[in-house]
Design a protein around this nucleic acid. Sequence first.
DNA 1: CATCGATATCGACGTGCTTCGATGTTCCTG
DNA 2: CAGGAACATCGAAGCACGTCGATATCGATG
Lengths: 118, 118
Amino acid sequence: MTTIELLPIQDVTACCSPVTTEAMTQESAEVLAKSLKAIADPARLRLISMVAAHEGAEACVCDLQEPLGLSQPTVSHHLKVLVDAGILHREKRGTWAYFSLVPDALDTLAGLITAPAK
Amino acid sequence: MTTIELLPIQDVTACCSPVTTEAMTQESAEVLAKSLKAIADPARLRLISMVAAHEGAEACVCDLQEPLGLSQPTVSHHLKVLVDAGILHREKRGTWAYFSLVPDALDTLAGLITAPAK
DNA sequence: CATCGATATCGACGTGCTTCGATGTTCCTG
DNA sequence: CAGGAACATCGAAGCACGTCGATATCGATG
């Protein structure tokens, strides 16, 4: 199987123009789909919004697990997916891992599924 | 199993505010995730872009099947998913089914994953 | 250095999704 | 009205994904 790299959102921009401008290639579509799949999950959407809404715009796993209502391994898994997709940033301080939004990552992704300003 | 309705994009807007404004509820996250899943697929992304790029901004299945390289039932299935999600519009004229983009559907969806202008 | 707490990784299970061939449906055409 | 063409639906197969418990790792603490 040909594995497709999960590029950070920023790199996705370089690869493909907005969806509605011209017919996408198979490769561009696969890269963009990977990024969209990363946020197309209820648990991960809630994690994103919880991190954004948290004071200081960062949160550790312990802050997120209980309100999300999922097990610790599952929360950790979802956070890894979001980090790999370039949407969240992980910073380990001591025993805790703090997550924050990568600036402009979501906006960049949003720009790829919108028609360009005309 | 509790089935969740696949609301058209327009209705999604009414249900939930942008991801980064405040913590989403489980229900809002599930509705938004459903819409995002609809476009988080390489074949469907290419279908969207092919319809948008096609002359007259509409296309029938016969126009899409060959360049996409998938079987006719599969193309039909993906188109149905996009229509159910409120992203494409289907119009049957005689034997042919013509698909076109629902105006502002993608822009609305993009607006939900972006931080509001501050 | 032994222990504990926070997080990551592993392996497994069930579910959902993408794809296909076969078939059904509807409409045009001769 | 019989045949064909375009499209939708159905059922099955294979694979990906979300979730969990068990376990490993790593830093803090006594």
